[in-house]
Nucleic acid binder design. Structure first.
Length: 362
DNA sequence: AGGTTAAGCGCG
DNA sequence: AAAGCGCGCTTAACCT
C-alpha cells in the first residue's frame, strides 16, 4: 500500500522501514530502544509502544500498521481467493511442515484469522454459514497445560485439572500463597503469563519483560512456582537431559523431534534447542490429539450419515458447518468424542459454541 | 522481470 | 550472546 504522508514539508511512506528509521532516529532524535538481528534500529510494536510514551508519532504508526495489516492480508485478499465455482475460500493443509506435528495452513492461511481485537474480529465475521446452517467451533480447553500435567505427573497440577479448578487461578493461589477464592485479577493475570511462559521454556528475563517487572522478581516467581509444582521442575530438567543424551524428544504418542543443536557449543543455538525440547512434547501431543479427534469425529459423521461438515482445523479447534437440525446432536457428540479420544491422567475438556458466523461461534 | 532476505505481525 | 515454542503472509529492499 502506497500511502504518502508529510513531515516538516517532506513526503514519506509509513510502510518503508528505511524512511521510518531516518525520520525517527535521525531527524526526530528518538532513542534507539533495541536493534534487530542485523543491527538496524527496531521499530516493532514493543518499541513503538515505549516511544509512544514520549512522542506523538509512534502511536499513529502503530494504528497504521495494524489497520494496513488487516486490510492488506485479509480484507483485500480473502475475497480474491474465493473459488469461483464454490464461492468459498479453500485452504491447503500441510501435514509435514511443522516439526512438532501440527498442521499448517496456506493459500490462504486460515489458521491466523484475526480474533484478538474488535477490528480484527470483523474479518472473522465474514466466515458465514449458508442458509439453514450454523457455524460450530469446538476447542480443547488448556490442552497444553493438561498435557504438561499428564507428562510431568505433578500432583498439584493434576489435582487442579481433576477438580476442575481454573488453572491460572490455581497457579496464582500457589505462587502467591493466597486462598483460591481470594486470588485477585492481577494475580491471575501474572499466573497466566507464568503458565504460558513455562510451556515455551521462558527464562526469568523473558518473564520480567512480559510482566514489566524486575528480573529478580520474575526469578523469585519462577522459584516459587517450581517449589509448588516440583513435578513440573523435574519434567523440565529430565526433558533437557534426555534430549541431550538421545538427541530427540517424543510426544506421548511417540512422534519424535530431532534436535541436532541440543549439544551445540553455540550458546544461543543450544538455548533455542533446549526450549524447543521443552515445548515440543506438549505442542506435539496436542497436535496428535486433535488429529485423532479429526479422524474419530469424521468416522462418526460418516457412520451415522450426518450432513454436518468438518471444514477447518486451527491447532486446538475444529470448525464445522452444521444444518440446524443437527445442532443439538453436534453440541453433545463432538465435545464428547474430542474428550474421549485419549485416556490421560487428567480429563480432557472440549467446549463448543454455535453462531451464524465464525466469530459468533466462540 | 523475478527471486531472496529482513522485518514485522496475524494466529494457536 | 541471548533471553518465548510453532507457523504463513506482506512489504520494502536488495540481488541476479
Amino acid at each position: 500500500m502506497q500511502e504518502a504522508y508529510e513531515l516538516a514539508g517532506q513526503p514519506f511512506n509509513l510502510g518503508s522501514p528505511k524512511q521510518i528509521g531516518e525520520i525517527f532516529f535521525t531527524k526526530l532524535g528518538l532513542p534507539i530502544v533495541k536493534k534487530t538481528p542485523s543491527g538496524a534500529p527496531s521499530t516493532d510494536e514493543e518499541v513503538l509502544e515505549k516511544l509512544a510514551e514520549d512522542f506523538p508519532l509512534p502511536a499513529k504508526l502503530l494504528m497504521h500498521r495494524s489497520l494496513s495489516k488487516l486490510k492488506g492480508t485479509y480484507t483485500d485478499k480473502l475475497g480474491q481467493l474465493a473459488n469461483p465455482r464454490s464461492g468459498r475460500v479453500h485452504t491447503h493443509y500441510a501435514q509435514a511442515v511443522a516439526v512438532t506435528g501440527r498442521l499448517s495452513s496456506n493459500d490462504p492461511n486460515l489458521q491466523n484469522i484475526p480474533i484478538r481485537t474488535a477490528e480484527g474480529r470483523r474479518v472473522r465475521e465474514a466466515f458465514v454459514a449458508p442458509p439453514g446452517h450454523v457455524i460450530a467451533s469446538a476447542d480443547y480447553s488448556q490442552i497444553e497445560l493438561r498435557i504438561m500435567a499428564h507428562i510431568s505427573g505433578d500432583e498439584s497440577l493434576l489435582r487442579a485439572f481433576t477438580e476442575g479448578i481454573d488453572v491460572h487461578r490455581a497457579t496464582a493461589a500457589e505462587v502467591f500463597g493466597t486462598p483460591v477464592d481470594k486470588v485477585s485479577s492481577e494475580q491471575r493475570r501474572y499466573a497466566k503469563v507464568i503458565n504460558f511462559g513455562l510451556i515455551y521454556g521462558m527464562s526469568s528475563f523473558g518473564l520480567a519483560k512480559n510482566l514489566g517487572i524486575e528480573t529478580k522478581a520474575a526469578a523469585s516467581y519462577i522459584d516459587r512456582y517450581f517449589a509448588r509444582y516440583p513435578g513440573v521442575k523435574r519434567y523440565m530438567d529430565e526433558t533437557r537431559a534426555s534430549a541431550k543424551e538421545q538427541g530427540y524428544v517424543e510426544t506421548v504418542f511417540g512422534r519424535r523431534l530431532y534436535l541436532p543443536e541440543i549439544n551445540s557449543p553455540n550458546g544461543p543455538r543450544r538455548g533455542g534447542a533446549e526450549r524447543a525440547a521443552i515445548n515440543a512434547p506438549m505442542q506435539g501431543t496436542a497436535a496428535d490429539l486433535i488429529k485423532l479427534s479429526m479422524v474419530a469425529v469424521q468416522d462418526v459423521l460418516d457412520t451415522e450419515g450426518r450432513a454436518t461438515k468438518m471444514i477447518m482445523q486451527v491447532h486446538d479447534e475444529l470448525v464445522f458447518e452444521v444444518p440446524e437440525a443437527e445442532v443439538e446432536w453436534v453440541r453433545t457428540a463432538v465435545p464428547r468424542i474430542m474428550a474421549e479420544v485419549a485416556d490421560l491422567k487428567v480429563p480432557l475438556l472440549a467446549e463448543i459454541g454455535f453462531g451464524p458466523n465464525w466469530d459468533k461461534a466462540h
